[in-house]
Design a binder for these strands. Structure first.
Length: 212
DNA sequence: GACCAGGCACATC
DNA sequence: GATGTGCATGGT
């Protein structure tokens, strides 16, 4: 069923072309992954624009920027006191480790890389997986609030399951394929934004359910 | 004015 | 390991 819903959503919406950063560069994806924590993407875009126009669009520049200046730039994305500190942390990490994260790797080494990312302050499971998948094209499925709701409402899965367990369920039901993981997460977000997972039950939701 | 938005750290049990 | 709370801002 997990794979079937993917097909239905893909037929419905087509390719999503995430990550929706303007330049699509790796560092911008990493930055966006932090900034979007509990925040609408349109506000992230404002913060990203601020960072670019202030010349704080590389890890080097973030690292050397005044915390206060950085904080001000990311304010539209909320939690700016936290996120500005997080950005400095991931900037330092990125400068040291970027090259090793680009390479394809075994399952166990990927697990280690994820673990190392999780040790950076401000990087939780969802953010780490977003970075691995969207910035480094590693085969990791991202679980977010939308995925939980989809799982709960349409797949008969307990949406309160721990993150890693849910991830395991999705990954074991899908081919180990970066493009599939990438598109599926984006499609779920698109679906949830337009469908009954928000309020009421819209036409799109009906159509999808009808095909199940 | 309430509620939500592509979470996370930390304390506590 | 599970649960609760604080963290900030902008749009609807």
């Amino acid at each position: 069923m997990i794979h079937r819903i993917y097909q239905v959503l893909f037929d419905l919406y087509g390719e999503q072309h995430w990550w929706p950063c303007k330049t699509g560069n790796r560092w911008e994806i990493v930055t966006g992954a932090i900034l979007t924590q509990n925040c609408a993407w349109r506000n992230v875009e404002k913060a990203l624009e601020n960072l670019t126009s202030a010349g704080m669009d590389t890890p080097e520049n973030i690292l050397h920027a005044e915390l206060e200046t950085l904080c001000k730039a990311v304010r539209p994305a909320g939690f700016s006191n936290q996120k500005s500190v997080y950005l400095k942390g991931i900037a330092a990490f990125f400068l040291e480790h970027e090259s090793e994260y680009c390479q394809e790797t075994s399952e166990s080494e990927l697990h280690n890389r994820r673990k190392k990312l999780l040790s950076v302050k401000g990087i939780g499971r969802e953010t780490a997986d977003s970075i691995l998948l969207y910035a480094f094209q590693q085969p990791v499925f991202v679980i977010d609030a939308y995925t939980r709701r989809l799982a709960g409402r349409h797949l008969g899965i307990d949406e309160a399951l721990p993150y890693d367990r849910l991830q395991e369920i999705f990954m074991s039901a899908l081919p180990r394929d970066v493009q599939v993981y990438n598109e599926y997460h984006a499609l779920i977000v698109q679906f949830c934004k337009e469908s009954c997972l928000k309020k009421g039950c819209g036409e799109i939701c009906q159509r999808v359910l009808g095909k199940e």
